[in-house]
Design a protein around this nucleic acid. Structure first.
Lengths: 346, 346
DNA sequence: CCGCTTTATTAAAGCGGTTTATAGGATCGT
DNA sequence: ACGATCCTATAAACCGCTTTAATAAAGCGG
């Protein structure tokens, strides 16, 4: 036996399909008696309007899509997305919307975008030249960008990545670190270039070093995961040339580094200072607690969702100013053990 | 200007709608020349089939829904769901499916279920008597349950909650703890009763105490969050009657307890041993590392998704045996300081 | 008792695709 | 030269619901 349709209800109640539809969506247009009868029959039959049919005819899905640049298993290993969804979720529930996670299907985010029955998209970390934008523009679904670049047709929610990174680097420099390594974010979409976020953070780091007259640091790339950080640590030079400070673009990588370092007998922060980025909840609980750049992730989600919902109502919205970041100094940073600084000699 | 439809492409290419449809879904039924032409025109016009229309006529959405019993903001504060989604996500991507998060809308999970355009549901922690099941059965969408109870029409994926809990309690008892408090999971859906998971875990705890001839422990209830654990600790009796051991039904609550305890000058594990449940990644990183019951969350997601996909293909599947749990002993448990055990006197 | 509003109800036209059944040629064997 | 066969391409029905425009019935003042 198949699904019960509006026609079934209509004939069972001895009315037209229109009447049934009105009973649910426009009850005041029906006489009291018929209304009751239709509703009763519908309940008895267990009728539920077919969502796709409804969406087709109403031009509304009641869903917003989150464009995920990577595989769900890798991206959900990082608490960042969880927090973001908390923010998005608040607004969604407030507006009776559900949230569709849209990762690349069969490797292609473009085709996943086409498949998605949504009223709006939130896109994460897309580069300006991502192919996905062509598709997005083609179908004309309102979109709000997060961690991307301005000067698209779409409004963007960003945080002050550059400022945060600069503060982090300055902190290390002030403590006397001169031999620092940067742990880069991996490129998001298998393209060669790095993400807008990574680019801005790197610029912030470099600015601080330049201002201090220090040479630009070495870099390694690490996936946003503890394992990624572990690998990053292992690729670091040892002995004399081992850095005394480390600027990671993600907390997860930073924590992986700390872990690997301690396992290798390198003490944090005595032998190696490490600074993360994001300030995920976990970072307050590591041993030692991680010094990191705080960004308001939940708020970012809330703001983006609020903007998208406005756009879905047809109202235009402008990109807000980047949200503030701030350095949170905890226990993973200190002055280097044998400072090379010219305090005394040696 | 509105969206490009199949009719637009058809007339622009001088063919019928059927031809356009075939060009995408049944290319071998078209002559080579027309196929090329249609595809070309479609590309030029930026045509993308309307997902809802497609879903209506094909009876397939390419989406599976995750029924979330609580608000997204509360449930995503717990890494449990992140891990589960990693597992679900793997299978989804493999099968070209997207994932729809379905929390209660306007407080009602039932109405959210109706709205959702999905081909299958994964439901989390629903009690046997949840109203949602009526709706679910009414619309006849394949469903797989996680952390629920067997003996529904739907297959269930569970872990050995009872065994895990029993091992945890036994561990504390063997260390000599006699004054233990249990931190309960809150009821999931604002109904009075507790979740199936909580019930099974409680039974496991009690079984161990009974076997040891110890009186059943006191209980407090705490939300699955660090803040919830903090509140739980504060509600504990102080001084002489303060428990020496604590069995939490979630790692998040356990971590909150540890945190609050240490802030109050109570040392873990010297003054208070705490055991969690779930073994979320964070638990290995707390200070001290948390002793907890491990359950294979990612695997649970994978398995449930695999089963659901089978069901969506029309094949029947049986509930598998509960997945194994195991006690992971880390640093948050030890023998109680002043054991009340009759080793000596007093 | 008539013309005019209101009110209650419905037929039919979408929404944008897919799919079945069918028609029009071209090809082919005889 | 002719019917059978094979390809292509299409008309039309359908998926299940919403909504506009129209109709039938009822109420009403004069």
């Amino acid at each position: 036996m198949s699904r019960v349709t509006i026609a079934d209800v209509a004939s069972a109640a001895g009315v037209s399909k229109t009447a049934v539809s009105f009973a649910f969506n426009n009850p005041e247009r029906l006489g009291h008696a018929t209304l009751e009868r239709v509703l009763g029959v519908a309940r008895d039959l267990g009728y539920t309007p077919h969502p796709a049919a409804r969406a087709l005819s109403m031009r509304r899905n009641g869903t917003i899509g989150v464009l995920i640049p990577q595989r769900l298993s890798t991206v959900f290993a990082n608490p960042f997305l969880s927090e973001l969804i908390q923010g998005l979720g608040e607004l969604c529930e407030e507006h009776d919307l559900t949230l569709l996670l849209v990762p690349p299907l069969d490797g292609s985010l473009e085709s996943a975008i086409r498949q998605a029955s949504v009223d709006g998209f939130i896109s994460l970390g897309l580069s300006p030249d991502d192919r996905a934008f062509e598709v997005l523009d083609g179908i004309g679904i309102p979109t709000v960008l997060i961690d991307s670049e301005d000067s698209f047709g779409h409004p963007v929610v960003n945080v002050d990545d550059r400022g945060g990174a600069e503060a982090a680097a300055k902190h290390l420099l002030q403590q006397g670190h001169r031999n620092v390594t940067i742990v880069l974010l991996p490129p998001a979409r298998s393209q060669v270039e790095s993400t807008p976020t990574a680019t801005r953070r790197l610029a912030g780091y470099h600015a601080a070093f330049e201002a201090a007259g220090a040479p630009p640091p070495e870099t390694v790339t690490a996936g946003v995961s503890i394992a990624g950080g572990t690998r990053a640590f292992e690729s670091l030079p040892r002995g004399k040339r081992q850095p005394t400070g480390l600027l990671a673009m993600s907390d997860m990588a930073a924590i992986g580094v700390m872990n690997a370092a301690q396992a290798a007998g390198v003490r944090v922060p005595e032998d190696l200072s490490v600074v993360g980025f994001d300030d995920i909840p976990l970072s307050a609980w590591t041993n030692p607690p991680l010094t990191t750049v705080h960004q308001p992730i939940v708020e970012k989600g809330r703001l983006a969702a609020r903007m998208l919902i406005e756009r879905m109502k047809g109202r235009g919205v402008d990109s807000p100013a980047p949200l503030n970041t701030s350095l949170v100094i905890r226990g993973s940073t200190s002055a280097p053990r044998n400072s090379d600084l010219p305090i005394g000699r040696r």
